[in-house]
Structures are given as C-alpha cells and as structure tokens.
C-alpha cells in the first residue's frame, strides 16, 4: 500500500477525516509553493493535491484559471513541478497527488512521466480530462510505476458508469460535489450525503469530496459524510489575495488550521 492508502487507514483507525488541500504549483512561484506546502503539513493537511498549470483548464472556475495563468507566466512547467515534489520528499512524507490536464503529461511523454513522477515521490495522479475510456494510455505506465490513479465521480455519473469507474479506481475516489467547474457554487450537503451513500454501497474505497468547499461549517458538515474533503479554490484565492504579504504562509496556515479543527 502506498502513502495515500496508509494515510486513510491511519485516519480511519483514529476515526478522523482527511483534509486534502489543492494548490496550483508556481502561484505565485515554485519557491513559494514549497514553503506553503511545508507549512500546510504542519497545520494538519493530510494529503496534498499539487495542480500542474495548463493553458486551457476547462474544468476550472475563474480562481484556478487565473492561478494557472499566473503560474505559467512565471515559467512553471511539469518538469519544474516534478522537481518541486522531489524537493519536498527530502523533508516530508506527506502523500502527494498531481492534479491536472492530460496535454502537459502527453507532451512530457506518458512513460517518462510515470517513471519520473514515481522517482520524485509522487503518490497518485488525477487527470481531469482523462475518463476511464481514454485512461489506458497513461495507466499502463502509472500502474507499472505503482502510482495511484485517482478517479472522479460527478453528480451526473449514473450507476452503471459508477461501477465501471470503481473497477479501475485506486487510492481514493474523488466525488465532485457540484455540477459545475471548480469553486463556482456551494455544495449541498443533503445531495452529497445521498450520493456518497450510494457509492458506499458499492465500494469500501475512501471517498473524498471537493469542488466548492470553502468554510469551516461546510468542512464540518461534509466531513461528517465523506472520508475526506478537498479545499481548492478557497486556498488559491487566499494565496492570491495575500501574495505580496510577508505573512502569506501564516495567513494560509491559519485558515487551514480552522478548517482542520472543524473537521474534528
């Protein structure tokens, strides 16, 4: 079992929920991302999702779109993000998922990517525009390298399709809490409880819920339903608002601390 699986096991044993945080790598700089990540680990983040910026993030709302643009402007590449992970691995064992779109990986070379990512210390990959129908060209390599392949389930995913997705998902299941792009609506707990309940009937795999969670109250409510929650746009927005502050790390960590406490 990899770092992701072990993390969920130990959390389960303590009856705790996973706090997963998304950051766009390179926003405002790769160096800042590294500092933020190390701070976040100390604030109780369980799993990191590191966003690889892409020029055309069609599943993302305005906040992450803008972050991707900023990261690209400062010259962030997949190569640079993999180096960042290797750097973090020297000092941290926090589980890391790379989150992004397929084209930068395809351009890098799927085979080379899987090998380098594993070597760098990546634990899982989540590729937004690679549904099971298209995933095999990357999966043959990530499976061989021993990387988890995190699958997405949406509110629109029907039962038949869910079964297909479950057959090949590894690590944890990412349930998209809204019918929409990232960060554009508040999740509705009742709907999520019903859907997560339906998924649970079919799998024992850990389920994390994300896309639109921003407040401690939401974290608490959804943490009561799922095995973990993902905070993305809210953190990215906070980073942007305080990009020039000397206290950037402290401000972000304070916010994450609050979320962590509410998760219980």
């Amino acid at each position: 079992m990899g770092r992701i699986g072990l993390k969920f096991e130990s959390l389960r044993a303590r009856n705790e929920k996973a706090l997963i945080v998304y950051l766009t790598a390179g926003d405002p700089s790769l160096d800042a991302t590294k500092k933020l990540i190390l701070g976040l680990e100390n604030s109780g983040v369980d799993i990191l999702e590191i966003g690889v910026p892409f020029s055309d993030p069609t599943a993302d709302g305005p906040v992450i779109q803008a972050a991707s643009q900023r990261a690209l402007k400062t010259g962030t590449t997949l190569h640079g993000v993999l180096n960042l992970v290797a750097d973090i691995r020297r000092v941290s064992e926090i589980p890391i998922v790379l989150f992004g779109y397929f084209n930068p990986i395809f351009a890098y070379g799927v085979d080379q990517f899987a090998k380098t990512a594993k070597q760098a210390g990546v634990d899982g990959v989540l590729v937004v525009d690679l549904p099971p129908e298209e995933a095999s060209e990357l999966r043959i390599h990530t499976d061989a390298a021993g990387l988890d392949f995190i699958a997405l389930v949406a509110p629109t995913t029907g039962k038949g399709r869910l079964k297909t997705i479950l057959k090949s998902a590894t690590g944890f299941l990412y349930y998209i809490s809204i019918t929409g792009v990232t960060g554009t609506a508040a999740p509705k707990a009742a709907d999520i409880a019903r859907e997560v309940g339906n998924i649970r009937k079919l799998t024992g795999m850990p389920i994390a819920v994300g896309f639109g969670i921003s407040t401690a109250a939401q974290a608490q409510e959804i943490g009561g339903i799922a095995d973990g929650i993902v905070i993305g746009s809210a953190v990215v927005k906070l980073i942007d608002e305080n990009r020039d502050s000397d206290d950037l790390k402290e401000i972000v960590c304070e916010y994450i601390n609050k979320i962590k406490k509410s998760l219980g």
């Binding site: 599943a59 525009d129 549904p131 298209e134 997405l152 995913t157």
Partner: peptide
Amino acid sequence: PYGHFDIFGGRYAAETLMPALL
C-alpha cells in the same frame, strides 16, 4: 466506437460531461 480515428479523436472530457456525451 470510442470516437478514435486511428490515434486521433476520442473523448478527453471531464467526468461531469461524460454521461451527457454518451
């Protein structure tokens, strides 16, 4: 049947859209 013209084409779409495409 998956929309491939040799190596081209396909359905590289976000999960939310997949059911609608099907």
